[in-house]
Design a protein around this nucleic acid. Structure first.
Lengths: 208, 208
DNA sequence: CGCTGATGTAAGAGTTGTTAACATGAGCTG
DNA sequence: CAGCTCATGTTAACAACTCTTACATCAGCG
């Protein structure tokens, strides 16, 4: 909320960003399908015709929400990974927690990114942001794989895709706290951590 | 299309089922949010008011679609698993392929089941059908775990949730053939198979 | 033959998407 | 500072839809 300190007046000042945030809020309340062009305008305190100055249609707005989501996602993951410090396995552990934490606390963004039915190629920026976020996972996988003897070193891309799939699966099936899918004796964090531990063990990376 | 051989006439004869199938078709075309009560009625060749006799609202219809999806899902998984025959690891392999195959070919059902934003408790039948489907995974995990020495045997529930998360993650990120999320050097089947192999290896279940 | 339940028809109220025409104000130019 | 210009918003209006209720109508059963 650092933008616009003088929003009043005929001109909104930063309607584009305001619409993106309104859309995000609506997605958070009513799911990825639960917002409408007109509704976003209303939530931003603006007439129904105004959004057409900034977005061609609903999908264009959604794509921008998702792109911003991927940017924040990348930042959160990169911060948690912290270039593998202090120790790759520990940093990797942080990375997993950050993935789940983002999926939960920024659930609206996560919805727009993965559950909106949006093609990842809807926009060049979206594609780029998505690739950058995945790059963090890939980098982490690279560091981990490097710890293995060259002989039994699996393809880095494959490992990063596996990790992504496990994380996404856990987040999407068990991630949402109280509105969760079913009641279980363990929560998402434990599930992800244990799954990743078993997986890494299977790669030959014993526990630290 | 085995129902209704005499659809003509004032009475539809099996409108409830016809609406469910119409909804499923629409979901397949335009995503889990892409169908409307009125639209489903139109697709079933019926007036917009007719559905109200069978479903309270859109969500009730969606819940029935999802419930039927889970039933078919359970059948497909159970058939692939085939009680662990001829050999648990092979049957498990079949199970994974069946999971992905269902997610792809019955993508409309899969959407209704997992991407519709529907609560799994929306309906008792939905909950029950969902539990039965998961039961197949759980049974398979049980058989596999039994192969491990009692000392290092992990909790069955945990293992089945892991497997579910991996399968769902792969299906949902890389599952849709051509409209897939990104172009990759390996397809979803290979990804799931390799991920599960590494995971099982991590549990101590060496390859067959 | 009349009852009951399943559908159809009609009709209202409310939204949405979208365009066209007009208003406002911020900044540049002189 | 005056005035032009353009991006940004507003109002107005319309067609298309959806949702939902009220009432009419048909089919089969006793």
């Amino acid at each position: 909320m650092s933008w616009k300190d003088r929003e009043r007046g005929y001109h909104h000042g930063n309607l584009r960003q305001a619409l993106i945030e309104a859309a995000r809020a609506l997605i958070g309340e009513k799911g990825p399908a639960g917002f409408t062009f007109a509704e976003a305008a209303r939530a931003a305190g603006v007439s129904a015709a105004a959004p057409y100055r900034h977005f061609r249609d609903r999908d264009a707005l959604m794509a921008d929400v998702a792109a911003q989501g991927f940017e924040r996602f990348e930042a959160a993951l990169a911060k948690a990974w912290n270039e593998g410090k202090p120790e790759p396995m520990i940093a990797f552990h942080h990375l997993g927690r950050a993935y789940l934490h983002f999926a939960r606390t920024e659930h609206a963004y996560y919805s727009a990114m993965f559950e909106s039915g949006l093609s990842p190629d809807a926009t060049p920026e979206l594609r780029a942001a998505s690739d950058r976020a995945f790059g963090v996972l890939r980098g982490a996988a690279e560091t981990l794989c490097a710890q293995l003897p060259a002989g039994k070193r699996p393809p880095v891309l494959m490992v990063s895709l596996h990790i992504w799939a496990i994380s996404h699966g856990v987040a999407s099936l068990f991630g949402r706290g109280d509105s969760g899918r079913r009641k279980l004796p363990m929560d998402a964090d434990e599930l992800l951590e244990s799954a990743v531990l078993v997986y890494l063990n299977g790669l030959g990376l014993g526990r630290a």
